[in-house]
């Protein structure tokens, strides 16, 4: 058995993990499972693609950065895409989720997010068709790095980007006042208000953070695999499995959960066949719920 599955798994796991951060934040702070999170990914990716095309139309063809398949237009477009996705999440919260949250029934919000997910996905299919598309059709040569593992420059760059983002989010959550406020809100919303935390502001930051990371994960999928309206929806189960495996509310947990599921999926593809890929996250999810429902880094409420 080749060790290639480790690299493949880490890459898939990075995308799952970045998405799972948003899922776990929404769940612990806003207290609902946001089924539209995958579609934030897809919308962010299409927004990024649109900006890349716009830059291409304005500046002509831009050469990619040395060994990578993409150049500065994609990096600029990614930042714009993240901002766009964050605005989309804020808008959706304002017109839909916040009103339903005020009524106080979590299940209604969950169902609404399911509806929003379908609507967002259909809008993408309507605007961009369901045909897959790509950021670049250039083929990268994978470099052998020993142990039978091959990796492309794009893959290395994206793994580094993931590591950087995860570290950044972790520091934000543990070292800054807004991070502490988010923790406080997830533990006791009433007390958070009493100590002077502006809940509406923290909720906005939560959406911005989750949506921006979803956009990055989507663009990673777009660079390494392909761009489709269903790309985010297909990530939903692995993302939820990762968030639950890591322990709801835990950022390091979500990322580690994502990596475990990514590697397990890649391993399963190699060992028992690609048709079992989707089953892996489901099996892991069920196993966690039976054996350790609070997840790896979860803590029982006291």
């Amino acid at each position: 058995m080749s060790l290639q599955f480790v690299v493949d798994g880490l890459l898939t796991g990075s995308m799952i993990g970045l998405g799972a951060i948003g899922v776990t934040l929404t769940y612990s702070i806003l207290r609902f499972s946001n089924f539209a999170h995958g579609d934030f990914m897809a919308w962010g990716t299409y927004a990024t693609l649109a900006v890349v095309s716009a830059i291409g139309a304005t500046f002509g063809k831009v050469a990619p950065i040395a060994p990578l398949s993409f150049g500065w237009p994609l990096l600029v477009a990614l930042v714009v895409g993240m901002a766009f996705t964050a605005l989309l999440a804020l808008l959706l919260d304002k017109v839909l989720f916040s009103r339903l949250r005020a009524q106080g029934q979590a299940i209604i919000v969950v169902m609404a997010s399911f509806g929003a997910s379908m609507a967002l996905r259909s809008l993408l299919e309507f605007s961009f068709t369901s045909r897959p598309t790509y950021f670049s059709r250039a083929i990268q040569i994978a470099m052998p790095v020993g142990f039978g593992i091959r990796i492309t420059p794009d893959q290395i760059a994206l793994l580094l980007l993931t590591a950087l983002l995860v570290l950044g989010v972790h520091l934000l959550m543990t070292r800054t006042q807004i991070g502490r406020s988010m923790q406080a809100l997830s533990q006791n919303a009433a007390l958070a208000r009493i100590v002077g935390i502006d809940v509406a502001g923290v909720v906005r930051v939560t959406w911005i953070l989750g949506a921006a990371l979803a956009c990055v994960a989507g663009v990673m999928i777009g660079i390494l695999v392909q761009i489709r309206p269903f790309m985010g929806f297909d990530m939903l189960l692995p993302m939820f499995a990762a968030a639950i495996l890591g322990g709801i509310g835990s950022i390091p947990g979500a990322v580690l959960g994502g990596l475990i599921i990514g590697i397990a999926e890649a391993g399963a593809v190699q060992l028992i066949g690609a048709e079992w890929r989707a089953a892996v996250s489901f099996i892991i999810l069920m196993a966690v719920l039976f054996v350790r429902p609070i997840g790896l880094f979860g803590v029982r409420e006291r």
Binding site: Q177, R180, S181, Q183, A184, Q187, N188, A190, L191, I194, V195, G196, I197, V299, R302
Partner: peptide, 24 residues
């Protein structure tokens, strides 16, 4: 205001409980 029960954030450290209240 100090509520009667659940008046601390149990999963945060003592210091973070104080820090989070320093917002103003």
């Amino acid at each position: 205001f100090v509520p009667q029960t659940e008046n601390i954030f149990p999963l945060m450290s003592v210091e973070d409980n104080l820090r989070v209240a320093c917002g103003i």
